[in-house]
């Protein structure tokens, strides 16, 4: 239990996410990708009559997995708190909501436009040795490092 409560050692963490990507491929040539999963969930939410595809199941699984971890480690709390961000923004809800909504929009539009995010291009696409995924990953990592320094670095916001 205490092993699970502590942060997963990085070599094991890397091995596990690799096994998820390889496992999905082996099962039915499925790509690991959280943005595609969210897109599938959105399609289903718009037209439930058409039925839920595997991506919707994966997306709901991610929600349940996060819930399961929180329950097992006794860290499940229904709360507006956002540790880390609260320390930087002062904890008021309105600026936090605005920042997260704007960030979410950029994440959703950008990752969908680019055809994948950290899991889809970063792990799965580079794992498949695809040049487009390497280009996308390099781009979003550089962009994120630059923006993080501008906004959250010393002298930032």
């Amino acid at each position: 239990m205490s092993f699970i409560a502590r942060v997963c050692p990085w070599p094991l963490a890397g091995l596990l996410v690799g096994l998820v990507a390889v496992g999905l491929q082996w099962v039915d040539n499925l790509p690991l990708g959280a943005t595609g999963a969210a897109g599938g969930f959105l399609e289903w939410a718009r037209r439930p009559a058409a039925g839920a595809g595997w991506r919707t199941f994966f997306f709901v699984g991610m929600l349940l997995g996060g819930c399961l971890y929180a329950l097992l480690t006794h860290s499940f709390r229904i709360s507006w708190a956002y540790p880390g961000l609260d320390a930087r923004l002062g904890g008021a809800l309105a600026p936090k909501a605005a920042l997260l909504l704007a960030g979410g929009l950029l994440i959703g539009f950008g990752a969908r436009w680019a055809g994948g995010c950290t899991s889809g291009h970063g792990i799965c696409g580079i794992g498949r040795l695809q040049a487009g995924s390497l280009l996308a990953t390099t781009t979003f990592v550089v962009a994120a490092v630059v923006v993080a320094h501008l906004v959250w670095g010393t002298g930032g916001l």
């Binding site: 996060g66 819930c67 997260l100 960030g103 929009l105 994440i107 995010c117 950290t118 994120a144």
Partner: peptide, 27 residues
């Protein structure tokens, strides 16, 4: 797309998978 995604990732400190897992944990 990745320029926009990277910007959002840095602002929110989360990417699509973790957003779902956070909601699942009651956040």
């Amino acid at each position: 797309g990745s320029l926009l995604f990277g910007t959002g990732w840095a602002l929110a400190g989360a990417c699509p998978g973790p957003i779902a897992a956070q909601v699942g944990a009651g956040r």
